[in-house]
């Protein structure tokens, strides 16, 4: 097991190594930690996702609003919908990759709006409130996702925070791409050690 702070540091480096901006890498780390805090082990799918987008994350960034693209990054979309102050009762998005990563952002929306939101589609049926994420969570689905304002019907599981150490090697490998190897010049300049 890792600690929460180790998880955040590792995922931030990994996301940055895959090509996300520093600010997005911070968001991705925070989103992963939120899922872990709810006992949802999304690390395998995050590692898989980051490997898949490694080097071309811009291709999945939001090109327009309203969305009009075949595939969209769940983190870019999540930030946008959580930060836009939407209060509509219904949203539908197509082509969402790994929509499990929308859950932390939907939780932020639910917190701000003070109500339960239900996320469905892509193999998921999940109730999300300020302090719970409950339901069937698909880790490897993608496609159309709907977010609706519904009364919650699903019973939140009694889970404990879980920060697994699985797939650290993938994250570390990506994270290494954010680091600078020693060079004769850096050694000559005394680098700071």
């Amino acid at each position: 097991m890792l600690s929460r702070s180790e998880t955040i540091a590792m995922v931030k480096r990994g996301a940055r190594g895959a090509g996300y901006s520093w600010g997005m890498a911070e968001e991705i780390a925070q989103a992963c930690a939120t899922l872990c805090a709810h006992g949802i082990n999304a690390q395998p799918v995050l590692a898989q996702y980051l490997q898949a987008v490694d080097g071309h994350v811009d291709a999945l960034a939001m090109q327009s609003w309203p969305l009009n693209q075949e595939r969209v990054c769940p983190f870019h979309l999540g930030c946008f919908i959580a930060e836009s102050g939407f209060s509509d009762d219904h949203h539908q998005f197509n082509g969402v990759q790994s929509p499990v990563f929308l859950l932390p952002y939907v939780q932020r929306m639910a917190t701000v709006q003070g109500r339960n939101l239900h996320i469905s589609g892509a193999g998921m049926a999940v109730d999300v409130g300020a302090d719970y994420i409950a339901g069937d969570i698909s880790m490897d689905a993608q496609g159309q996702v709907m977010i609706t304002a519904d009364e919650y019907t699903l019973t939140p599981p009694s889970t404990s925070p879980c920060y697994p150490a699985q797939y650290c090697d993938v994250m570390d490998r990506l994270g290494q791409k954010t680091m600078v190897p020693d060079s004769d010049e850096s050694r000559a300049n005394g680098a700071g050690d």
Binding site: Y20, S21, W22, G23, M24, E26, E27, A61, M62, W65, H76, C79, F80, E83
Partner: peptide
């Protein structure tokens, strides 16, 4: 930020 994610951290 949707158009300029590179400025998110700052």
């Amino acid at each position: 930020l949707r158009k300029h994610p590179e400025h998110r951290h700052i």
